[in-house]
Design a binder for these strands. Structure first.
Length: 633
DNA sequence: GGCAGCCGCGCG
DNA sequence: AAAGCGCGCGGCTGCC
């Protein structure tokens, strides 16, 4: 008999699976059975590990007692099914509100791996396990599913994050198992039907193997983390997992009718702009096509303008607005600008954005990825709620539901503060110790006036100077950046002068930059304050190398804060609903608003002190309350 | 039809 | 000598 029939011939209610069931189907005779399906069993069999499939409360209690006696961590995995009612939703089976928990797999080493079937067992039965140390791969996923189902694991490690600390990447379990264990573990059943009344033997073997692999991986990765002094990078992320799980599970409330109205407004503006554009470009140029716009420019500009027009790395004429605006008064600029604005809003923040509203919770549950970037920042997707337009009309759509308010707090100038701490520049540190604003100080240095004499314009220009020069920008780049980002007209000469004044004001920073570059050239890598290592291929590393410890240090501060958030907010009705690198957004019961502000500020200050114990925290954070993200800002 | 690279652009 | 960095997403384009 072939494996194809295994599913139907499987006994209806096995108390557990005997090892003898590993035998049977021998040679690969069945064409429709992927190679991987047999390998799950073979790996388990070769290691002498039997599957115990638990479907009765009595067996569950016995097994749990056994598992709780194991001193080391247990490998954990879960399988989830698409929730009834959402068979076709893209997040069904992934997002907890659209999923049901089917299996919990646990492996403590030794000869048995345990599968608890939650279609027949209440999850409460497993409660004693949630105080044990557990290891999962991409543990935030399992944590969310378990928390949503009513279980709260307290000590959860993650092999994805362990490997991330080692490599900087987010690698799947199968790839890690291949690399570190030499195991070929199948992934083809990941998306199989986990709500089937009878799970197939292949499914059970697949599920079991993940828990076994994850525990084996844990031991391998732990040794390597220790040897390479990267354990702290891992634990920083590990301790933020509970906050991230809560954040994703909470979601953020979004005003759908308000959004529809705004979208309608954008579409009207876009239609008008498209008409104006067509009068200039003619009917055959697609304004969405960089290539076509570029060719139009080539055909319509005079030779002198053409000669100085910016080009892309592939030699095409640039068609971004910054380039267009350099040739002031060009009739294309105004309508194209309006068209591009509205088109961007409609495509990214229009219908596509609203499609991420969860049908069950009516909230947006984005995905935040620990270790998602090469500096250690979080990445966010589906949708990315770290980059919604700052336009107040849009941010107001993130409004608190009735009876609740939004609390927002951000770190002021955190990257400059981290730069001061990492470089040890005496003047920068002195400024922060005195509670001074560094943009003002830089402005005074560049303009050659006292800090009290700095004009708003000078301070604005100093922002560009600070953020640009911090990461090794040249005079030309600075001039362009100041205009594009801060609306400050700066000549090349002025930019050069600002550059000299900046480094004269902060000689410690300049020395740090030089030392850093030298180190990167020598070693090919650079580390963040926690010790996260970023490796570079030969060539073009200059600004990335200068940026990594600073952006990374700021990211580490946020992670530290996240690990403190739950305890600081204890007793307050507050939900974490968004994180934007240096900003934390909570949704809070209206009567708890003020308390939440103070608690959040304290947590953020404590987070800073965790990573940088000597940091001066005057003016570091300020929290505010409002009915929406726009109002609380 | 799916996929990858390029480009532009939203945010910090 | 000179060099801002980090993301995700959508449209277009060329390729398979």
């Amino acid at each position: 008999m072939g494996t194809r029939n295994r599913q139907t011939s499987f006994p209806a209610s096995p108390p557990f699976i005997q090892e003898s069931l590993f035998d049977g189907n021998g040679r690969g005779m069945v064409p429709r059975s992927p190679a991987g399906q047999r390998q799950a069993r073979e790996i388990l069999k070769n290691r002498g590990i039997a599957i115990k499939y638990i479907r009765t409360a009595k067996r569950a209690r016995q097994v749990i007692e056994l598992l709780c006696k194991i001193s080391g961590p247990l490998g954990l995995d879960t399988e989830t099914a698409r929730a009834q009612g959402f068979p076709a939703h893209p997040q069904a089976g992934l997002e907890p509100h659209l999923s049901s928990l089917r299996l919990v797999q646990l492996y403590g080493g030794g000869r048995h791996v345990y599968l608890f079937d939650l279609f027949t067992l209440p999850l409460d039965l497993l409660a004693p396990l949630w105080r044990r140390p557990l290891i999962a791969h991409n543990a935030v996923f399992d944590l969310k599913q378990l928390r949503h189902a009513g279980a709260v694991p307290r000590r959860l490690g993650c092999t994805l994050l362990m490997a991330n600390a080692l490599t900087g990447r987010r690698t799947g379990l199968a790839d890690l198992a291949r690399e570190y264990l030499g195991w070929e573990i199948p992934k083809d059943l990941q998306t199989s039907n986990w709500s089937a009344p009878q799970l197939s033997f292949e499914q059970l073997a697949y599920a079991a193997l993940d828990a076994v692999a994850v525990l084996n991986l844990y031991h391998e990765l732990k040794t390597r983390l220790k040897a390479r002094r990267l354990a702290g990078v891992y634990t920083r992320m590990r301790d933020a997992q509970a906050a991230i799980a809560a954040l994703e599970l909470n979601g953020i409330h979004f005003d759908r009718p308000g959004h529809a109205a705004l979208l309608d407004q954008w579409q009207r503006t876009q239609t008008a702009a498209r008409g104006n554009l067509a009068r200039i470009l003619g009917p055959h140029v697609n304004p969405d096509s960089g290539g076509q716009l570029s060719r139009w420019l080539a055909d319509n500009l005079d030779a002198r303008t053409l000669a100085q027009w910016p080009v892309t790395p592939h030699g095409q004429l640039r068609t971004n607005l910054a380039s267009l605006k350099r040739f002031t008064g060009h009739p294309l600029v105004a309508p194209l600008s309006q068209y591009k604005d509205t088109t961007k809003m409609i495509s990214t923040f229009g219908t596509a954005f609203a499609e991420h509203i969860n049908p069950v919770t009516r909230r947006i549950h984005a995905s935040f990825r620990l270790g998602g970037t090469s500096t250690g920042r979080l990445a966010c997707a589906a949708p990315n709620i770290q980059n919604p337009p700052r336009d107040l009309q849009f941010r107001a759509l993130f409004k608190a539901p009735p009876g609740r308010v939004i609390v927002v707090a951000d770190y002021g100038q955190i990257e400059l503060r981290v730069a001061a701490l990492v470089s040890g520049d005496a003047n920068m540190l002195k400024a922060y110790a005195a509670g001074l604003d560094l943009h003002r100080k830089t402005a005074a240095a560049v303009a050659g006036v006292a800090t009290s004499q700095v004009t708003p314009e000078q301070r604005q220009a100093a922002k560009a100077v600070n953020f640009g020069l911090l990461y090794g920008q040249g005079a030309k780049g600075l001039a362009r950046y100041a205009r594009a980002q801060y609306g400050v007209a700066m000549s090349l000469t002025q930019a050069e002068q600002a550059r000299r004044a900046f480094f004269r004001a902060y000689p410690g920073l300049q020395r740090w930059q030089q030392d850093t570059i030298r180190e990167v050239r020598r070693t090919g890598c650079i580390a963040t304050p926690d010790g996260r290592v970023r490796r570079f291929k030969a060539g073009r590393v200059y600004s990335e190398a200068l940026n990594t410890p600073i952006q990374g240090g700021a990211a580490e501060v946020l992670l530290a804060t996240l690990s403190l958030l739950e305890s600081h907010l204890a007793g307050i009705d507050a939900l974490l609903v968004n994180l934007i690198h240096d900003e934390i957004v909570l949704e809070v019961a209206r009567e708890d608003g003020t308390r939440a502000c103070r608690a959040l500020e304290e947590a953020m200050i404590a987070g800073m002190k965790t990573v940088f114990p000597r940091a001066d925290t005057r003016g570091l954070v300020e929290a505010a309350v409002g009915d929406s993200w726009a109002e609380a800002k």
